[in-house]
């Protein structure tokens, strides 16, 4: 059976293309990246810690304008917790930074980018955000620079570069992972619903296609005379 398939020109072509793709992608992956490789957990507890840290640090300067306060109920925050986070804002208000464009321009010389979609706007998604937040280090002249994105205007908000205590450092790392997990959620809040629905759709399609295959076999067997 397999031998017969391989003899078909189309199958040979397919094999050739797969090989090309393999060689091509292994070539592309060849260069080392500076990204951290630890796994980012996307559990509700992580998201909830992520939103707390993000609301205290990130939203000082950054908007999350596509996320509304009541959306936070979806990651398992209680109405009370959301009320505490939103303060005087309405539950249907978007999450905006506490500074306006003019203040940001005065501070950084630019308006800070919105973070709602950041995890999708960078090729490596949450892993990139996590790595970026921890890529700060102190140069010999005392200046603090970011390895991953040297031109960045954002200061080391998690104070990772000046922290020497191992335990505090690992707590910061956890916070960075949780921020990344939270931003992955803001970028793609329907991901869970999509995958759940996807499993059912795929199961349905497998059964349907198998039945159509049998029906095709049965219909065509009438021809063999």
């Amino acid at each position: 059976m397999i031998k017969k398939l391989i003899k078909k020109p189309a199958m040979r072509l397919l094999l050739l293309l797969v090989c090309c793709f393999q060689i091509g992608s292994s070539w592309a992956e060849g260069h080392p990246t500076d990204l951290r490789e630890d796994d980012i957990a996307h559990e509700p507890a992580n998201l909830q810690n992520g939103i707390q840290v993000a609301m205290n640090l990130c939203t000082l300067c950054h908007d999350l304008k596509y996320v509304k306060y009541h959306d936070l109920l979806e990651i398992g925050l209680s109405a009370k917790e959301v009320d505490k986070i939103r303060g005087a804002n309405s539950a249907s208000d978007p999450i905006l930074s506490k500074m306006n464009d003019k203040q940001m321009n005065a501070l950084f010389g630019m308006t800070t980018p919105d973070l709602s979609l950041m995890a999708k706007a960078r090729g490596d998604g949450a892993q990139y955000i996590y790595s970026l937040l921890l890529a700060y280090h102190e140069r010999r002249d005392g200046a603090i620079v970011n390895n991953l994105y040297p031109d960045i205007k954002m200061p080391d908000v998690l104070a990772y570069s000046i922290e020497n205590d191992e335990r505090a450092r690992s707590a910061i790392e956890q916070n960075a992972r949780d921020i990344a997990a939270f931003l992955a959620w803001t970028a793609d809040p329907k991901a869970k619903e999509r995958r759940t629905l996807g499993v059912y759709v795929m199961l349905y399609l497998f059964v349907l296609t198998f039945m159509l295959y049998r029906l095709k076999q049965k219909t065509w067997s009438r021809l063999k005379t």
Binding site: G198, V201, M202, L205, T209, L215, K216
Partner: peptide, 20 residues
Amino acid sequence: VKDLFGLGVFLIIYCYFVFF
């Protein structure tokens, strides 16, 4: 029936990308 079976195979690949 042959086209419908082909459609089933196509939809499996298509829906994989749409959902996952």
